[in-house]
């Protein structure tokens, strides 16, 4: 990422991802609207969070494999204050963990929303359910693109 994280803090004050060297490609692909996960070039296994070396075959060669963007809610919480001000303003909101259809052991944290740019509390809490099918969309946040999740039409 080219912008300094603090300088790029968006107007609504939500925290921006602060990528490390290993994680940077995730956010670069996200900026193109692609959900990609690091995979070992040698043994093919997916790993998350990204890291320099494959824990299975110890290869240092990796690639970023595109995911379907579909998954299921594995768990969720609804944070209430005290919270950082920008989050308190939308509380109680939801945070979900999505197990990816392509790699169920990888569970991405995110927010279930009614549309990509909708607030973190936009979904009726009654619709939060473990096992619910969701798919990824991306929203612009302070110059970065971050994943959000929508319920699949049932």
């Amino acid at each position: 990422m080219t912008t300094a994280p603090e300088a790029a803090a968006p107007a609504d004050g939500l925290l921006l991802p602060v990528p490390d060297e290993d994680g940077a490609p995730f956010w670069e692909y996200a900026a193109r609207g692609e959900l990609r996960v690091q995979a070992c070039t040698d043994c093919g296994r997916l790993r998350f969070p990204p890291r320099p070396c494959c824990p299975h075959c110890r290869s240092f060669d990796s690639e970023w494999r595109r995911m379907s963007g579909r998954g299921r809610i594995w768990s969720y919480v609804r944070p209430h204050p005290p919270l950082l001000p920008a989050y308190a303003a939308q509380a109680p909101y939801n945070v979900i963990l999505v197990e990816l259809a392509d790699a169920p052991h990888i569970r991405l944290a995110g927010n279930l929303v009614t549309s990509a740019d909708a607030p973190l509390d936009s979904v009726d809490p009654a619709r939060l359910r473990i096992g619910a099918r969701v798919h990824v969309v991306f929203t612009e946040l302070g110059g970065m693109s971050v994943p959000r999740w929508l319920l699949e039409k049932s």
Binding site: W27, L108, G110, N111, V146
Partner: peptide, 8 residues
């Protein structure tokens, strides 16, 4: 980076 932006 994988959790805090989403309010965790």
């Amino acid at each position: 980076q994988w959790t805090r932006p989403f309010g965790l």
